[in-house]
Design a binder for these strands. Sequence first.
DNA 1: CATGAATGAGGCTTCATTCAT
DNA 2: GATGAATGAAGCCTCATTCAT
Lengths: 222, 222, 222, 222
Amino acid sequence: MKAILKNINIEVNKNLYLKDPNSSDLGKAIIYNSVLLIDEMGLEHFTFRKLAQSIKTTESTIYRYFENKHKLLTYLLSWYFKFIEHLVVISTSTIDDPIEKLSFCIKILSRIEEDNIQILNLELLQKIIIVESNKILHSKELSKDLSLDTFEAYNQLCNRVSDIIIMINKDYKYAKSLANILIEGIYNQKFNCKYNKLLADSMNKQDIEEFYFNLVINNIKT
Amino acid sequence: MKAILKNINIEVNKNLYLKDPNSSDLGKAIIYNSVLLIDEMGLEHFTFRKLAQSIKTTESTIYRYFENKHKLLTYLLSWYFKFIEHLVVISTSTIDDPIEKLSFCIKILSRIEEDNIQILNLELLQKIIIVESNKILHSKELSKDLSLDTFEAYNQLCNRVSDIIIMINKDYKYAKSLANILIEGIYNQKFNCKYNKLLADSMNKQDIEEFYFNLVINNIKT
Amino acid sequence: MKAILKNINIEVNKNLYLKDPNSSDLGKAIIYNSVLLIDEMGLEHFTFRKLAQSIKTTESTIYRYFENKHKLLTYLLSWYFKFIEHLVVISTSTIDDPIEKLSFCIKILSRIEEDNIQILNLELLQKIIIVESNKILHSKELSKDLSLDTFEAYNQLCNRVSDIIIMINKDYKYAKSLANILIEGIYNQKFNCKYNKLLADSMNKQDIEEFYFNLVINNIKT
Amino acid sequence: MKAILKNINIEVNKNLYLKDPNSSDLGKAIIYNSVLLIDEMGLEHFTFRKLAQSIKTTESTIYRYFENKHKLLTYLLSWYFKFIEHLVVISTSTIDDPIEKLSFCIKILSRIEEDNIQILNLELLQKIIIVESNKILHSKELSKDLSLDTFEAYNQLCNRVSDIIIMINKDYKYAKSLANILIEGIYNQKFNCKYNKLLADSMNKQDIEEFYFNLVINNIKT
DNA sequence: CATGAATGAGGCTTCATTCAT
DNA sequence: GATGAATGAAGCCTCATTCAT
């Protein structure tokens, strides 16, 4: 998988940044450290000032890259969903059997954070997304355009999964909803297994994958 | 159902408030309007100042009821989850068949917001919970005790549903996780059907209830 | 000494209180606890609200005794200086030899806090006075009248000591200043020995008494 | 003496400020005006808001220089004690006779406020210190580190004076305490002569200097 | 182009006091 | 006479952003 990751270059909507954070070390530091800080203190308490201090630069410098913290956040989320969608597409494109496709897709969703790519800490970003995603997808903060941008990335991901479901059973009516449940469910499950043990039955990665695989299969086979 | 609601009196942890908001009209206005405002502007932008303005009182007056906005929020969430749990318990207690219990329970979860009780707008509160719940359950703001309080209320609700699942199939291993998926799923689904139509297949209330009923049954019957 | 204390009844300027704190248990609790709280948190952070909480009453109740915190404070200080002056007068009135008078007077100043009388904790009150007295004696907070009241009490105490000095050497020109140095010095010394060990040479009570006795004698004998 | 002052550059602990107030006109105005305001209204009523108004800037600007009013205050005090210590050291370093050293040192302590250096009003700062020093040295507001910083500056000053006393009589046991009395005494005396005439015998500067010189000499000669 | 300084608005919270019962 | 509720002002501090160099 790592080999794949090396070659991926995610294109995020250019309206989200003023200067491409990938174009400089400082930009990369902004991305990397915002993930750390948002995880650490929550979105509400994350500010450009604190980010600036943590990477030993000034607020104004960060403003050269992102207009405000919500655009930065939208950038992160867009990037994340596009990244996973890309991964799902690439990884399953060579598989013919739709059931195997599904199985592999679930594996990716469930194990994605194990890969650490340089630009940011995937595991923390995923944690942020779990905690903040609903908020962001339905946010009143973002201009419709931007919020749509993140939404679109997430929606695309759902579509990919939904497509696989339909390949298995082309008559299934609720593929999109099921895809949505699957994605949110896996994330929540992983999160709960780690941070809210009481809320989840004890499962390891493989159990989770089987559980969700069965959840889908049992429903669409009917 | 309304008859039942009239008789319910939810007890929330007394550490969450300084003065019981139910003990005065002002207190009730605080509760009622915070739900409106949080929905309107999001938790992050909700402040006691704005709340005070909207009910034509002063910040300090609100501080006589709640120590800070996070305690107010925790109050709302605790109240909500306790309220639903209560409803689930009462409504299903007279049903013997576990499958019918499940079916009725799903109905409650899916239709609860239709009842409007005086003190607050259930539908909006539910919307807030969908959007902000992850954020709140894992908040860094709250002392562990308080966050546990909300968590406990939610956990109890999951336990009730999980108990019903186990009544249907006492060997099923992942009842708690499934309960969790069911609750979160129903909420999300309703939300998406209303606000994010793209993310969900078109379903009406009854479709949702059937869908989730099948989701559970198909899995635990195996 | 305790026998003496029992019979002392200090009269404080009646303008300082609205209702005599000695006239009720609540009043006594106000006095007793304000000393504890001011010591604990400093005058600046001491408020009627906190005092009310600590004695489980309400702010308005305290307002029935004292118009504001500065009058309460002035009450405490006035009381304290009058109390010591009284003690000095009574204790030395039966001594004829002025040098012995001085010696005994120093002993009182240096050991006064050892006696605990019911109404308040003398040791803590003294600590407060050391930390806050300059501030209060020269305060811009108090109406001139009230500040004068405390000042007058302190001044009277200085006069008593100064009188003794003059008895020893009636030609000594700076008796008042020396009395002032003596009183402030003893207090500071005790305080430093306890809380700022670096600032003072290690001395026990007896050393301090001897030191100050010599300080006075060596100067006025010249 | 003025010639000396011009060349003195006092180094204050860098943790006390965020931005060196000496590095800008605004910074200097902050220092200068805080002294005026604290004197005018007392430390308790001195706020950054009022300071900002008096120098026609905003609170946030002041926060760029000092984290809070207590750090600003600590800065002033540290600066002051370091300044005087410096002065004592420099001025007495060329004198060989310890008695003359003492005499000169007392002169400095008693006349220091006559010099007005640009950055602040020494006389007022000294007044503040007299009124607020005990309060500050034993403040509960400051972290131990910072309060130690001021304390250390004062302690160093005492050490310098104490050293001179020991030069005069190397067997004298209470040099530190005597130094402490001397410094506090001179300050108090000056203050009383000016603002509390009743508390002090009428003395001019020269009288004060003689009085304290004798106070020391008479005690240590024994 | 990059950076440090500045700033107005607003966040959260407590204060001191008054009012009504 | 005692108490609980209410409130406007202010305290302390941070935010998001703009300006000037």
